[in-house]
Design a protein around this nucleic acid. Structure first.
Lengths: 168, 168
DNA sequence: TAATATTTTCAAAAAATATTGAAAATATCG
DNA sequence: CGATATTTTCAATATTTTTTGAAAATATTA
């Protein structure tokens, strides 16, 4: 396999992996493409490389930027906007975890809180059993939330620490 | 909110959460329904509760069984098959992790291995940079794989240990 | 075994999601 | 500012995924 084949293969696989995690294929492919691109790419280059439309490219690039794993790069003397991906895969994983925690885990914890609180008056067997199950899920969700939170925080501190040292 | 409303709410939320994790909504809803059902339910009861067709119910129940988080229960004197969900949420999480590790992480590791190995002849700057990025991802994937593997194994040992103690 | 109940399969339909492409909006240049 | 380049939006379209429902297969009873 030569370099280009290998790159193609990687982009395809990253796309497939993405879809099974609720990230659309194109978005994952653009991410893969930027991850292995030696330089920042502009919209036209991305469209060309992945054979997708301008609208599609634009939309998914924006979403990657929202996730905090791709950023705009401006080149002096060039009107076009270029894009480059965060290359430190650990940072990428942390950003994704942080986002998913915020978008999915936190809302779930809120819903469970509501469900539980408003139902605690009656105390028949069925209600008790329900509250029991929900409480167990709540406990688990909170543990997961706090574990992830800790991991993310530890990582941010480490990063800040390293950065500060560099400038000290 | 009364018990039934709370149950409805939970089923809906679990369904939404599921979809953002690449699990289809109905599958997640059936799982939620069984999680909070006081007794095992049969196909007709599930169809009725979630307003879905027989085919849909059958398909998604089977998938939940494949994931190892729902099991068939037979009631003496009743021809119908009943279904009940694993109620220990920690066990559920472990099963899901184990499955996803097997279905997604392991194949990704294999692909990366291939991509990397076949490209190591040429050593121009671009190839080197590509191999660098890929290696970083590989390292990360292997760490995640091993961490998850460890977690799952620890849990299985704990379970076996507890179980053995009970019968000793 | 035949009659009946139950489950499974799967082609077709529906619903959800992703993509296109061209018009509108915005930015940049001289 | 006007001309031109670039990006964004979004209704229409295409694709993918999910769901239905009825026929086929399987299981159970007497």
């Amino acid at each position: 396999m030569n370099l280009n084949e290998a790159k193609q293969q990687f982009i395809q696989s990253w796309g497939v992996l993405g879809s099974s995690w609720g990230i659309n294929r194109t978005m994952a492919q653009i991410h893969a493409l930027l991850l292995i691109a030696p330089e920042a790419l502009n919209a036209d280059e991305i469209m060309e490389a992945l054979q997708i439309s301008r609208g599609n490219a634009n939309m998914n690039i924006r979403e990657l930027i929202n996730w905090g794993i791709v950023e705009k790069v401006l080149k002096p003397g060039d009107r076009k906007e270029y894009f480059s991906a965060e290359k430190d895969i650990w940072k990428v994983a942390m950003r994704i975890m942080k986002e998913r925690k915020k978008r999915e885990l936190d809302p779930m914890i809120t819903v469970i809180e509501q469900i539980k609180s408003v139902d605690e008056n009656k105390k028949d067997a069925e209600t008790k059993a329900f509250i029991d199950t929900i409480s167990q899920i709540q406990k688990f969700a909170k543990q997961a939330d706090s574990a992830l939170g800790g991991l993310i925080k530890a990582d941010e501190n480490w990063f800040t620490g390293t950065l500060l040292k560099l400038f000290k």
